[in-house]
Design a protein around this nucleic acid. Structure first.
Lengths: 328, 328
DNA sequence: CTCACACTTGCATACGTATGCAAGAAACTC
DNA sequence: GAGTTTCTTGCATACGTATGCAAGTGTGAG
């Protein structure tokens, strides 16, 4: 039923050995131009494609990048997915997409990645235990935490400089005369949430400005719900700092539902600068994460580690920039 | 560096043959409970995981589903991605995510899918040439067009009943007293766009209602831009039918920018019922595509075809339902 | 022409698993 | 207990490729 064309078939047609066929398709092997040409012609005629499984079996390598993601529905990560897929394809890698329901990456997911002997792994918004990270290290599989950190430098990580960003945001809000603030964080176990909280609160504490903190979950619904809860309290805060944009949109809609005018009655600042933040319906002031730069850093590191594994980890923080719009 | 534990190692420790180990991990092979237990214990102790590449090499099968997608940034497809990943994982399949930049799926992408000998393929919003579809058929790889059609029944397809849906929408708008309409389509080469146009226009033609048609691209920016173009004309249409929600949001924002009140001055109807359609900022009237049902149909077909390939194709159309909100 | 060297090629084998076959063990029938 | 059937197991081999090794080819220097 399925006529598999093997290197042997091509060899026969081209009048060479199977080894030579193999060498034609193997980067860096030594073949003469003449046989290369003959092999390629024969391959073309037969419709030969090297069998990735046989190849991976023997080389113990693959051209697959594992991409672990949870919040696909957050436009920020949708864009991240798109860019990673696009760039890795250019470099000849395919994407094994691993969706994690739970916050923490499951053992099952890790096994999948190990089973396919992925060339590298990008973990985006899923959290991961230390031991799982070690598992990859043990297998010499390069790993990057994208927009997350784990531990204290044991693993490679590419992030926005959340600390300085959230400090800037706090200072900006204070300069606008905000007096009583509300902070809405994302999943409290994530480094991004903790850092954005830390930088923000540091400044406020220092200036002895009162603030309330609410914990949410990085989703629109979460932001919306949390804002509703905030509004149950008597006092309307003078500004909201929301740990990501999609939650911020939920907050804005909740405020509007309560006929609270933005930015007159209160202000809202998000984080990410997703496309929607610039939509006329929201015009959200936010902090732009430099996605392209972050992705480039991630890809470069992974490709380098794939070529020659060192296991050296570094925490790379890129700045991004403040984007002022109409919610402040 | 990488200590690979093989079935042979497990066999030695368990005091059985490699074949027996293999049989323990192979669905449906005959092994006694006793040896099964011993093998599993030995495997546990050594940390054995069957090598997928060796397995695929010999069985000529894989546990990979290829998912081809373009508009990841459209929340509709983000949700589709999430659901497919989740469900296929439950059935023991991994997802090879293939992002296509171009409208049409590239030869390169097809080769990737064939190289990995995917168990099945789901093509969502990418268009595909007939010959490419035949390629999969030739290799007995089940293929589903999700929310798209190709040809006239040669390939399996799961769609919303676009024709009847868009007819209903037209009738609804007429019942609301709309007199001069605007239709904004998506990518004009896609079956969804053509069908939604056809159903809509059929009704209008029949009733001799005037309408203008504009071609756009299924994105927010496209919808926004197209609406701006529409508004350059002198007459404001009494209603817009926009071929998907994300474009419709762009249309709404464009209308608002021009101080046009919805639904008083004009009305807007979308298609998909993405989460954002229900957000207070938009409250978009739309047609709900029954994602869960469509996904279930797709998965069932694929799983059945994977178990036993027939190559029989069917066009499955599910109804969905009208969701009336505040833009009409 | 000889020798040394670089380059190219084929042979044989290995990667880790699945599976047909035959033999052995076990269970069951009469 | 003998005969029959079912279940279980090990042996050997195959899947399609990469690669060490040795042999072959060609090139250039002297």
């Amino acid at each position: 039923m399925r006529e598999t064309v093997t290197a042997k078939d091509v060899a026969k047609l081209a009048g060479v050995s199977q080894s030579s066929v193999s060498r034609v398709y193997f980067e860096g092997a030594s073949v003469s131009e003449k046989t290369k040409k003959r092999v390629l012609e024969a391959a073309e005629e037969l419709g030969y494609r090297p069998n990735v499984y046989a190849r991976s079996l023997i080389t113990n390598q693959s051209n697959i990048i594992g991409l672990v993601m949870k919040g696909v529905q957050n436009p920020f990560y949708a864009q991240v997915l798109k860019r990673f897929s696009s760039i890795f394809k250019q470099h000849g890698y395919s994407i094994l997409f691993v969706y994690t329901n739970n916050d923490e990456i499951q053992k099952e997911d890790v096994e999948t990645l190990l089973n396919y002997n992925v060339a590298g792994v990008v973990v985006t918004d899923a959290t991961m235990s230390f031991s799982v990270g070690e598992e990859f290290k043990k297998n010499h599989i390069p790993l990057v935490f994208f927009n997350r950190k784990l531990g204290t430098g044991e693993f490679h990580s590419v992030c926005c400089n959340n600390l300085s960003a959230s400090r800037s945001i706090a200072q900006y809000l204070l300069s606008k005369g905000a007096s009583e603030l509300v902070l809405i964080t994302g999943n409290e176990h994530t480094s991004t949430s903790m850092e954005r909280e830390k930088g923000f609160c540091e400044v406020l504490d220092q200036q002895k400005i009162a603030y309330r903190k609410y914990n949410s979950d990085y989703t629109y619904e979460g932001g919306h719900q949390t804002a509703m809860t905030v509004l149950e309290g008597k006092r309307l805060p003078s500004a909201f700092f929301v740990a990501n944009d999609i939650m911020a949109l939920g907050v804005i809609d909740a405020l509007r539902k309560n006929d609270i005018r933005i930015p007159q009655d209160t202000k809202v600042v998000g984080f990410d600068n997703i496309d929607m933040a610039s939509w006329p319906a929201y015009e959200l002031t936010t902090w732009e994460q430099p996605i392209e730069e972050m992705i480039e850093e991630t890809v470069n590191y992974l490709l380098a580690e794939i070529t020659s594994y060192t296991g050296l980890a570094q925490i790379i923080e890129v700045d991004g920039k403040f984007v002022e719009r109409k919610t402040t």
